[in-house]
């Protein structure tokens, strides 16, 4: 077994996870382990169950079977906000920002989870509240600088171009101080040039914030450059895993993506 898939040094472990909707098994018997500090990718063609995996990991679905462990603690059955508190922050395939709120305010939403003061300290205007509020603002502004949005702090999120909104969403996720970033199709809707830049950016923030990152992605080309370990799904099951080069040349993977004929003609 590869070092990247070793359970001992893993940050996120899924063991025999099965998720059924009525008679449909969207994910069956999925097991993987993401090493601390690694960038891993879950890929697969349309309908492979990638989004279900995302929803299971982020806590929107509770799988019928199997266990999920984050930083050594079982997170199966926890609410999304509890999982976020434990150190996992997801971003979405379709960007979910508050379009009327400014860039700074959007990032500050992410800061909330690490806040100590309670709401009534805001209502009563206690001194500690103002201090913490300024700290959060400074933290959000610093994060905006990391994602090259420091010039647009006061602009509404809805007015930003698509790529900037993507970076803003990542900044908001970083504001929760995660140990693991879960990115659902971050390159969706981007042209090749933009997605290359995004992947470079993802690699950069991993080094800078000392993170582990799990990408869930449809496009194989996008993940090859940045991921250190890849799991390939088809019809809800794992069909291959390994280093990018191993996966790229795996006939099962090629068949899943391109169909039967390619193999026989090759």
């Amino acid at each position: 077994m590869n070092a990247a898939n070793d359970k001992a040094g893993a940050i996120l472990v899924a063991e025999n996870v099965t998720m059924r909707f009525g008679g449909v098994t969207a994910v069956s018997d999925l097991s993987f382990a993401l090493r601390k500090g690694a960038i891993g990718g879950v890929i697969g063609p349309n309908g492979a169950g990638k989004t279900t995996v995302f929803n299971v990991l982020s806590g929107f679905y509770t799988p019928q079977e199997g266990e999920i462990t984050l930083l050594g603690k079982n997170i199966k059955g926890l609410q999304p906000y509890e999982i976020c508190k434990m150190g996992m922050a997801p971003t979405f395939q379709n960007i979910r920002l508050s379009p009327q709120m400014t860039v700074l305010e959007n990032i500050m939403v992410g800061c909330h989870v690490r806040r100590h003061g309670r709401w009534w300290s805001a209502a009563l205007g206690l001194p500690g509240f103002y201090r913490e509020e300024r700290e959060l603002q400074a933290k959000a502004a610093a994060l905006a600088e990391k994602v090259n949005l420091d010039k647009q702090l006061g602009e509404t999120a809805g007015s930003l171009p698509y790529g900037a909104q993507r970076r803003l969403e990542i900044a908001r996720a970083l504001a929760t101080e995660p140990a693991l970033l879960l990115l659902d199709e971050p390159a969706a809707g981007m042209n090749p040039q933009e997605s290359i830049e995004l992947m470079r950016f993802i690699g950069k923030i991993r080094d800078e914030f000392n993170l582990s990152i799990l990408l869930i992605e449809h496009d194989m080309k996008v993940v090859m450059g940045v991921c250190e370990y890849i799991w390939v799904m088809e019809y809800g099951a794992l069909i291959a895993e390994g280093l990018p080069d191993q996966v790229r040349n795996n006939p099962l993977v090629i068949r899943a993506y391109l169909g039967e004929d390619v193999i026989t003609n090759a």
């Binding site: 806590g59 999304p80 979910r96 305010e105 500050m108 939403v109 908001r172």
Partner: peptide
């Protein structure tokens, strides 16, 4: 900000630890 985030997108709010 949190209340407005809940108004705009409940799902995003919940994964941001709210």
């Amino acid at each position: 900000n949190i209340l407005r985030c809940i108004r705009d997108n409940e799902i995003a709010a919940s994964v941001m630890g709210i």
